[in-house]
Write a protein that binds this DNA or RNA. Sequence first.
DNA 1: TTTGATACTTTGTAAGGACAAAGTATTGAC
DNA 2: GTCAATACTTTGTCCTTACAAAGTATCAAA
Lengths: 252, 252
Amino acid sequence: MSEQPLDGVLVPKVVLDRASPVPLYYQVATCLQEQIEGGELPVGGRLENEVELADRLGVSRPTMRKAIGYLVERGMLVRRRGVGTQIVHPKVRRPVELTSLYDDLAKTGRAPRTEVRSLEVGPATDAVAETLGIPTGTLVTTFERIRYAGDEPLAIMHNAVPVDVVALRAEDLEQHGLYEILRSAGRVPRIANQVVGAKAATATEARLLGDPRGAPMLTMTRTAWDESGRGVEYGSHVYRASRYSFELTLTC
Amino acid sequence: MSEQPLDGVLVPKVVLDRASPVPLYYQVATCLQEQIEGGELPVGGRLENEVELADRLGVSRPTMRKAIGYLVERGMLVRRRGVGTQIVHPKVRRPVELTSLYDDLAKTGRAPRTEVRSLEVGPATDAVAETLGIPTGTLVTTFERIRYAGDEPLAIMHNAVPVDVVALRAEDLEQHGLYEILRSAGRVPRIANQVVGAKAATATEARLLGDPRGAPMLTMTRTAWDESGRGVEYGSHVYRASRYSFELTLTC
DNA sequence: TTTGATACTTTGTAAGGACAAAGTATTGAC
DNA sequence: GTCAATACTTTGTCCTTACAAAGTATCAAA
C-alpha cells in the first residue's frame, strides 16, 4: 500500500463505481470534497499532480481535470501551472445559495412559521411585469407574508408570482417555503437578481414586527428566473436587522 | 453568405485570432457574450447546435463546449440535452464581483475620494487574527477611511491587513482602492466571506456621514483570502443606506 | 384519435494524444 | 558566491473520436 509520500504530497483515497449513472468526474470531485471537508486532506497541502492522479484512479486526464476544475470553481482548490494543485479552504458554500428564508431557518433548526396576511390574483403592475419580463396585465398572485422564527417575527415579505407558473394557495404558503413550492411544481429558480439595502422601519412595519418605529431594517428585492429564462418570482422583503443578516461567499 | 436560418436558430458571428495568446475558448465565449449583451442574439433564442457551431467556427467540439460552459456558468446560457442551447438572460454579472467600493464608484463614473482618518501598525487582536487565520499578535495595519462620491460621504470603512501581505501608506490609500493596491502587490483576493446587515447610525457615524443619528446604515464585514489561502484583508464597513445598496446575481 | 414504438437530434461523458506556457530547481560560468 | 542559462515539473489549451442519455418528432397500429 502506497502511503503518503515523503514530501507532503497528498494522496487522496478515491473509490469509483463505473456502473453508477453518476458521472465519473463528479464521483471523483465529491470524494475529494468530502476528504477536504473531513480534514483528511489538510488546508495548504499540495495534491498529487493531475497525470499521476488520473493514472492512479484509472481515469483519463480530462476527467481528472474536470473533477479538479469543479472544486476550483467553488474555491476549495487552487491550481498553478508549474506548481501544482493546493487545498485552500475547507468550508466554502457556493456564492450564496438560491434559497428562501424558510429553507434557511429550517436548516438551522429554528422552527419557521408563516402567516399569510393577504393573497389575491390580479393583473401585474407595470413595474412587476417589466422586471419579470412578462406582458403587462398578465395575471399574478400577489401576497404578503410574515415569517416567524419560533414566536419572534423576523420579516415581512411581499411577493408576486405569475399564475401560470404555479397556482398558489394560502394554506400551502403557511406550510411550505415559496421556493419549495416552486421546486415541487417543476419551476426551479435558476438565476436571480438581488438588491440588498437598508432602511428605517415604517410605522406599520414596526407594529407588525414588534420593533420601535424607525428601527433599522434590512431590505432585499429579488427577481428570479427559471431555466428557460421565464420570470417566476418577484419579491420585496423587509427583515429585522437585529435578527437577520446575509452571509455570502464569493470567489473571484 | 448564410444568414439566419428559417426556424429562428441563431448564428452568431465570431472572429477568431489563432495567433493571439488569449485562449480560443475564451475568445469564443466573450464574442458570444458581447452579442448577447448587445442584443444581436435575443433572449429566448436558440443557438446553433454545438457540433455545427464548432464546425463553422473551425474549433473542436470540446473547445466550443468550454466556451458555452463558461457562459452557462454565469447564467447567460442554458443547455438541455436533446433540445439545444438557449439564451436566458442578457445582463448578468458574476455572482457579485470581488471588488471594492472604490472600484465600483470609479466604474460608474462617480469620482471616488478617500480620507484616511487613522492608520497604525500593531499586533492583531484575537478576533481579527482568528478570522484571518494568522497567529495572534501578528503585526497588522489597521486603518479607518471615509469614502466620498463627489462631495458626499458614502461610507466609513475599517480594515486590517497583515503587514507582511503589503505595506500600506496613507498616501497610497488616498489615491487608490485597497483592492487595487493588493492586486498590484500580487496579493490578489480570490475568495471572500461577507456578512451584510443593517443597523442604526451611532452618534459618531451620523456626524461623520452627515446623516441624522439613528439613520439606517448598511453594514458589511468581509474577510478575504488570496489564492494560497492566506488571509489578506479583514474589513468592517458602514454604508449610508440612503446612498448605497448591494446588487448581486446568483445562479443556482 | 390515441397510444406506443421508433428514429432523429442534441447535449453529456469519457478517452487519448500532443504541444505550450509558467514556475521551480539545478547547473555552470564568471 | 552570485547570477544567468538550462532542464524539469506541472498545469493549460486544443484536437479527434466514440458512445450514452435525454428530449422531440414521426409514424403506424389499435
